[in-house]
């Protein structure tokens, strides 16, 4: 398939009108029709139903639309990126990261991005997954890496980087230290440090969470003070004096998310490509 065929299809899917789509693409209507027919032949079926007064997408058209849009957008981003070679333009990246994940996790990607984009302007926002989703949607974040809540807004493109289980952080010598895994039933009798994030939701709302903290260092400090135990992601490094024991709970995906259909800048495109190209867990 060719770039222009995909461009014509995207214009047609938007206007559902051959005349307007041809105008938008600056081609004649027969040329647009021919390109769409070739694309249909190649994709193995009709993309549009042409009725007398109505044009609409077929099931195949509906299915291929977001996929071809993603590929077209990637090609456009690549062209933009290539055009910016050697230019000294500010390249901002507004990155959201779930509070319970360490920035260290992203070190290999951020390191390469900083090396290859001399004008990178990085800002990192730490929050729980739900506010990160809101900020993606309202355009104040370009990309987020988060422990996926059960439901992500449909408008978000998401790719699973890896699956992570949860652990229980406790002071060394705690009465649960010999359990591996710790059964979730054991949480009911514990004082837990609340986090007000997706981990609280994953471990159940009915537990006692008298003390709360909203960043990982403070959560662990409270555990160290003996105020309770805390649930954390399995890749979390326990602070000195603390130990981590796996919890008997299903794993959750750690996802990379962007807003579908929103054109992205050079830094965002580079970040997403690097993050998706690499292995975050052993390759199966």
């Amino acid at each position: 398939m060719e770039l222009h065929q995909v461009r014509y299809f995207l214009a047609l899917a938007q206007s559902l009108n051959f005349t307007r789509a041809a105008e938008a693409c600056n081609v004649t209507q027969p040329a647009l029709t021919k390109a769409i027919q070739r694309l249909e032949a190649e994709l193995g079926g009709a993309l549009l139903l042409r009725e007398r007064s109505l044009t609409r997408l077929t099931a195949l058209g509906e299915a291929m639309l977001p996929l071809l849009a993603a590929t077209y957008q990637a090609a456009e981003a690549a062209r933009l990126q290539a055009a910016s070679f050697g230019r000294q333009e500010a390249t901002p990246l507004r990155l959201g990261l779930t509070r319970s994940l360490s920035v260290d996790l992203l070190a290999p990607v951020l390191d390469e991005l900083a090396r290859s984009l001399s004008c990178l302007e990085l800002s990192i926002v730490r929050a729980a997954a739900d506010p990160l989703c809101e900020r993606l949607l309202d355009g104040t974040l370009d990309v987020a890496v988060m422990r996926a809540p059960d439901r992500l807004p449909e408008r978000l493109h998401r790719w699973i980087l890896f699956d992570e289980g949860l652990v229980l952080l406790m002071p060394a010598g705690h009465s649960l230290a010999d359990l591996d895994p710790v059964p979730t039933s054991a949480l009911a009798g514990l004082a837990l440090i609340g986090r007000d994030d997706e981990i609280d939701a994953m471990t159940g709302p009915g537990l006692e969470r008298r003390h709360r903290a909203d960043d990982e260092a403070s959560v662990q400090a409270l555990v160290g003070f003996g105020l309770g135990c805390a649930v954390a992601g399995a890749r979390t490094a326990p602070a000195t004096g603390l130990i981590a024991r796996p919890l008997d709970l299903p794993t959750h995906p750690i996802v990379l998310a962007t807003v579908a259909g929103r054109p992205c800048g050079v830094a965002t495109d580079g970040f997403v490509k690097l993050a998706r190209a690499r292995a975050w867990a052993p390759v199966r």
Partner: peptide, 13 residues
């Protein structure tokens, strides 16, 4: 050829 930037196997662009 269209110019490109791609992530290689070693995680470099």
């Amino acid at each position: 050829m269209p110019a490109f930037v791609l992530p290689n196997a070693e995680g470099r662009l």
